[in-house]
């Protein structure tokens, strides 16, 4: 559906995107995971044709460059900034953007109704959006991007600064769109979002794609062993073979198969009050790939 080949973009001395190669299959949800300033938004704008690349190419569904209006008609975009008119109502915003996408008459009315339902804003459709909460504005921002049922939807940090309730609503909306077969490119710096929503995740840092695969494959390739931490109820028998040291009554060790290791310890007579298994996640993958924590980057 979308192919980015050798994309490069600089702003003066800053290299924002440095040779990005990505391919998104139809119906797939691809996440771009990276810290702020990693080049995710610039990559999206290059994909949309809003920015011209210094090098490389963008091709959409074999149709050509997104600078072509006919190609652009198949794109939907929800920018990181709230790209809505606060002096207009949700209904007026949607009708305006719908008309720009070529919708008219009943098609437009139907699309507006569906978008409002998706955003959960049917009851507030006539109110000026300046009176909306941040979460409601985010939902409308997404609705404006999906109004014309685009084949490819590019979402740039669509949950930035929203409350948990609105975030869940947005997740459900995006999952519903994915279920309909919409191809989605989703940028975020929250690993939980990438893990929940994306079929594949591209780890992006300093304008480069460091790895791109399914979450499980990324964990397998770049994640460390799960870590088991056991709070002991009593001192272990002297004969017990322990997989790690005991500190402050806690046994801590890394292992590939935590369930098997725990069964073996129990067989050796160890008793514990509580245990915790810490599995690798995308944070661990990012740390492994960059040497930095995703949150601290």
């Amino acid at each position: 559906m979308l192919r980015l080949t050798g994309l490069r973009k600089t702003f003066g001395a800053l290299v924002a995107v440095d040779g990005v190669d990505l391919e998104v299959a139809p119906g797939e949800t691809l996440g771009l995971l990276g810290p702020n300033g990693a080049g995710k938004s610039t990559t999206i704008k290059l994909a949309l044709g809003v920015l011209d690349p210094d090098a490389g190419s963008v091709e959409l569904a074999g149709l050509g460059s997104p600078r072509d209006p006919d190609v652009r008609r198949r794109l939907g975009y929800a920018p990181q900034d709230l790209a809505i008119y606060e002096e207009l109502s949700a209904d007026e915003n949607l009708r305006f953007f719908g008309r720009l996408q070529g919708l008219h008459g009943r098609d437009l009315s139907r699309a507006v109704d569906e978008a409002l339902a998706l955003a959960g804003l049917v009851d507030r459709r006539r109110d000026r959006t300046g009176t909306y909460s941040g979460g409601m504005k985010r939902r409308l921002n997404l609705a404006c991007a999906t109004l014309h049922a685009p084949a490819l939807l590019l979402l740039d940090e669509p949950t930035a600064g929203v409350d948990p309730q609105s975030r869940n609503h947005l997740f459900e909306s995006i999952e519903a769109l994915a279920a309909r077969g919409t191809t989605i490119v989703y940028t975020t710096h929250y690993m939980e979002e990438a893990e929940r929503l994306c079929d594949r995740v591209a780890i992006v840092d300093h304008g480069r794609v460091l790895a791109c695969d399914s979450v499980d494959s990324l964990l397998a390739a770049h994640g460390s062993q799960p870590v088991v931490e056991v709070e002991l109820a009593e001192l272990p028998p002297a004969s017990a073979k322990l997989p790690g040291p005991i500190e402050d009554g806690r046994l801590r060790f890394g292992v590939d198969e935590p369930e098997l290791a725990l069964a073996e310890l129990r067989a050796q007579g160890l008793r514990w009050r509580s245990l915790r298994v810490q599995r690798a996640d995308l944070e661990t993958v990012f740390l492994e790939l960059t040497g930095r924590s995703l949150r601290d980057a």
Partner: peptide, 14 residues
Amino acid sequence: SSGTLVRLWTAPIG
């Protein structure tokens, strides 16, 4: 500055 221009740029219009 508000971001609506980028959305307009991505619409199928010149």
